[in-house]
């Protein structure tokens, strides 16, 4: 354990320094991830107003709260490994990572966490700005917030392991943009980004209940908003735990067989 702490500490020192060099690009890339929830916030608030104030269980201020928290959750759980692996494997950049004495996933996790730490200096002011602009119905309870932090942490690792595993498809095909986009499209609907899950058609809701997307994004959001009963909260954590285990097992299996396929370019 101590060994890993030292390794991570070393990774953080380098990755923070590297990420800091790209702060301008990082902020620019963030615009899309802020604008998307704002757009759907406005769309749903417009729908609610047109129907006399409510859609399902949500009024415009609830939508504002939902999408501001969703912006934060998505910001802290998203990864870019699926785009990066294509390049790593095609260009042979993975070879360098394999030479290090630790599994390459650790440097990716450290890299991702450094990025999130740096970005939080932009994310939180943005969230406050959106709070002022949209006047959300968001109450703060310490206990809910503590549970939210747990759910967010599990969501981060769950999403990280799933997307890291999917990224490994690049071992078998170098054209994985199409797969990436399919995953992305599913996520758009099933993680509650286009609409809160309860506003989706029944069939889609049932699919969302099984697949991981909902538990990685919508669940922490609804938890923070105080919309879930105790029973729903425990069900959510159970699903998160289940997907965390499944994704870890898949990751190990896929990594082991993928690495055998890998023949570095130029070797």
């Amino acid at each position: 354990m101590k060994h890993y702490l030292e390794i991570y500490w070393a990774f953080f020192k380098t990755t923070i320094a590297v990420q800091f060099q790209y702060r301008a690009s990082m902020s620019i890339w963030m615009i899309g991830r802020v604008l998307e929830p704002v757009v759907y916030l406005v769309v749903w608030a417009t729908v609610a107003n047109a129907r006399g104030g409510m859609v399902g269980d949500y009024n415009p201020e609830d939508f504002a709260a939902y999408y501001i928290v969703l912006m934060i959750v998505n910001q802290f759980t998203f990864t870019w490994v699926m785009h990066e692996y294509d390049y790593r494997i095609r260009q042979g950049a993975l070879s360098v990572l394999l030479l290090k004495p630790v599994h390459p996933i650790h440097s990716d996790i450290a890299d991702n966490i450094s990025y999130k730490v740096l970005m939080s200096f932009i994310v939180f002011p943005t969230a406050i700005l959106l709070y002022i602009l949209f006047d959300p119905n968001l109450l703060f309870h310490l206990q809910t917030f503590a549970l939210f932090l747990c759910a967010l942490t599990i969501a981060f690792f769950m999403r990280f392991f799933i997307e890291w595993t999917l990224a490994l498809i690049a071992f078998w095909t170098t054209r994985n943009e199409a797969i990436n986009q399919m995953y992305f499209t599913l996520g758009l609907f099933l993680s509650g980004r286009i609409a809160p899950i309860e506003l989706l058609p029944n069939l889609v809701q049932q699919i969302a209940n099984i697949l991981p997307f909902r538990w990685a994004v919508a669940f922490p959001v609804e938890l923070m908003l105080g919309r879930l009963s105790n029973e729903q909260i425990w069900h959510g954590f159970t699903m998160q735990g289940m997907w965390l285990v499944i994704s870890l097992v898949l990751l190990k299996i896929v990594w082991r067989s993928g690495i055998k396929k890998y023949s570095a370019v130029g070797s």
Partner: peptide, 19 residues
């Protein structure tokens, strides 16, 4: 992306007649 866009429209308009 066409399917996503139309799906999004369908969900929004399943709750309203006009936006």
């Amino acid at each position: 992306s066409l399917g996503t866009a139309i799906g999004g429209l369908a969900i929004v308009f399943s709750h309203t007649d006009s936006l």
